[in-house]
Write a protein that binds this DNA or RNA. Structure first.
Lengths: 211, 211
DNA sequence: GTCTATAGCCTGATAGAC
DNA sequence: GTCTATCAGGCTATAGAC
């Protein structure tokens, strides 16, 4: 049985290597620039060999999409757990998410833009994204409970507003200064200041509204 | 000389037709899906004929980029001029711009995302974009002068903040509900509410801060 | 200005030997 | 599992006849 395990592990390693190479190609050539031929070239095998690991190019996109979503979710969760509950947790989670995104721009484009119209992520690959929304929503609910925000922030709409701050800063940063890390440049430093506007968008019922 | 004029006009019409077709292809197949062969097919000519009008595929991208920037700038300007000066003018201009963008999504992606790494717009094609920033900045300055916003809004940073609201709403709308017009759906209705946060981001010096 | 023809590449995917 | 060989098609771009 160790034979089988070893083979399975080796196979998994190859799959990961293929995805690493695919991500590198997308970074250099754009999301649409990914081709199995180029992957094969860099991996040092012939193109047909890749079909033992992925049935099609779209399957590679799907695996990349899923891997990106899982990585991003994990990063966000980790940052949220070590921060104060409620609003600080939301900000910390999204900041970590954006930092990850800036250093994985190709995956980010695949996940949050729609650069390949013929590619639709599978339900399985999309699942972490749904969970991410849930995690954020829970934190926003907590912020409402703690009196940091008004009740509107706990509705679906609150997540959308927050996502606009996040994706807006990120899109502008990626399109205009892709070589700078998150936190540098003209756009990403504005993100925390925009997040600080949330209490103005969803004013908490009691105090803290006026100076 | 009318001979020459007629020929020049006919040539210009063909160029416009090529660009219309190119935009349609990008809408269907994605920005990267544009190919001169498909343009030729739809125009009813052979691919080599297109090289009489554009020296390369990148030149077509550049012409599309320029045409999009000019159209968007004109739409924005028109809306700004008929609105009240200052902040209302900024909101009206960007709303018109976003409405245009939602019905020209392929051009918008070409202009505001960076989906084709090998394409860099020429200085000429990029010029309207610079002017657009200037127009917005002038309106923001006016808003400061009128006491609608604090002085920070008139700095470069003010335009960037506004652009994040705009591009954020737009990106989310295009990626998640591309078939809905601007103003419908989960994201674009949030845009005016985010714009209404500007006085909280750049508080005017005197009154209007407290309720 | 448009055409035919073609060079010279690229691609995704499959069949079947080893 | 990897290979060779190949299919069947795509593409940009150019040369040169008409």
């Amino acid at each position: 049985m160790t034979q089988v395990d070893r083979r399975a592990r080796r196979r998994q390693e190859t799959i990961e290597e293929i995805l690493d190479i695919a991500e590198a190609i997308m970074t250099e050539e754009g999301v649409n620039g990914l081709s199995l031929a180029e992957v094969a070239r860099r991996l040092g095998v012939q193109p047909p060999s890749l079909y033992k690991y992925f049935p099609s190019l779209m399957a590679v996109f799907d695996a990349l999409f899923k891997r990106g979503q899982l990585a991003n979710l994990a990063i966000m969760r980790g940052a949220m757990e070590t921060a104060e509950p409620g609003l600080p947790s939301v900000v910390a989670g999204l900041t970590a998410s954006c930092t990850w995104a800036m250093s994985h721009q190709a995956l980010t484009q695949l996940m949050w833009w729609r650069p390949v119209p013929s590619f639709e992520p599978s339900a399985e690959a999309f699942a972490p994204s749904i969970e991410m929304v849930e995690v954020q929503r829970a934190a926003l609910r907590e912020a409402v409970k703690l009196g940091q925000l008004g009740p509107g922030a706990a509705k679906e709409e609150g997540v959308y507003a927050v996502s606009i701050f996040c994706i807006g800063s990120l899109t502008q940063a990626m399109a205009n200064e892709p070589e700078l890390p998150w936190g540098k440049g003209r756009f990403s430093p504005l993100f925390p200041r925009l997040m600080a506007l949330l209490p103005a968008l969803y004013p908490p019922p009691k105090a803290n509204t006026s100076k």
